[in-house]
Design a protein around this nucleic acid. Structure first.
Lengths: 203, 203
DNA sequence: TTGACAAACTTAACAACGTTAAGTATTTTT
DNA sequence: AAAAATACTTAACGTTGTTAAGTTTGTCAA
């Protein structure tokens, strides 16, 4: 059965070749330049070959989203080493914003673009998106337990805090032009401080 | 010179015909269905006629964005009648979220989509986007003056609070599938309460 | 009123796109 | 070595945004 194993390896390799080329095109040249034909040219296959590995273009973007999530989760979970829950909470928030501003392409794929999500019918298919959200919930629970945050519905609190950082990130990514470049970082930094300290200083 | 006046009127009328058809297509059938050809068919002109009135497709979306802003600003400024600054602040936030969830298309045009903003080089061209932001800043000033909010940089505070509501709105619009439909409204309502009360109850 | 000129609009075409159907090689199985 | 399955390509369809060239319509001076 070694031959069918090799075939399966080859298939995965080809899928990765396609995905990596697509990701590279997306990150370097933006969404508009990710065309089936350009991916094909990059990997030196005919355009139609791609359809032997992916149903359509949206499925490619769905898989790119997964890749982005894996990268994102890896970075997010690094903060779990921090013992102090309030310090961990801050670090998590900072890390979120950092990832978003340093990898706007990944962030777009995960939380803004429609393409990766167009064919989803249920939230279950968003498992990769859950990992870091669950981590946030756990952090919030710790904060509440230690009385750093008032007792509230965990779901509401998690959604609120996610909204808060997502708002900052997505404003900068999609409407950054609106804010003079010199102040942009200060603004982001300041907003994070402002909102987080308002949340946790109450006790 | 009445004849050239009539011509100018006609030109504006034609522009509006194009814009209204484009907006209708956008709101009813989504971005993908706004094509030059479909707009043309709707207004019963040839596709190329549209290029006599707009430079390209992005310019149409830029103008649609302006229309969305006008509608948005009109609704937002209604809350200015409220005397009590803290009550006004809450009402403003609620009105923001309401507009976003009831007019996701408008909201997308204003604050999420790239198309309307692709050819902008400076924030000055975003005058329509400023109106309600300036109004927010004024409201924040009032709150600070009355000691309902701690003394801070107005720009940072405004950006923070905008981020906060924008986060809620854009999460629901672009990643609504992630949250079960039954709870979505409660989640949004809860988040708004949670975040706003954390901000203003300190004094 | 007519002829020149400009404005408004259309036809035809281009290059690029996503995607499918049909065909050709290549590899594996019998 | 023949048959069957796999991997890949060629050619084409129907769209898309956009431009160049042509036609019709309206305006104005003679």
């Amino acid at each position: 059965m070694s031959i069918s194993e090799r075939k399966q390896r080859d298939k995965i390799e080809m899928e990765n070749l396609i995905l990596n080329s697509a990701m590279e095109l997306f990150l370097k040249e933006g969404y508009d330049n990710v065309t089936i034909r350009k991916i094909a040219e990059k990997i030196e296959y005919s355009p139609t070959t791609i359809y032997l590995y992916f149903k359509d273009k949206d499925e490619i973007f769905f898989t790119l989203q997964k890749m982005a999530f894996r990268e994102f989760n890896k970075v997010q979970l690094k903060t779990s080493e921090i013992k102090d829950p309030i310090e961990r909470f801050f670090a998590h928030g900072k890390s979120y914003i950092n990832f978003a501003t340093e990898n706007p392409g990944y962030y777009d794929l995960m939380f803004i673009m429609n393409e990766p999500v167009r064919n989803l019918k249920s939230p279950d298919e968003w498992k990769d998106g859950m990992t870091s959200y669950d981590y946030l919930k756990q952090n919030i629970k710790d904060l509440i337990q230690m009385k750093y945050l008032p007792e509230t519905d965990i779901e509401v609190a998690a959604f609120s805090i996610w909204s808060l950082v997502h708002g900052i990130a997505s404003l900068v990514i999609r409407r950054g032009i609106f804010f003079p470049e010199e102040y942009r970082n200060q603004l982001v930094e300041g907003a994070l401080m402002y909102l987080f300290s308002n949340l946790s200083n109450k006790s």
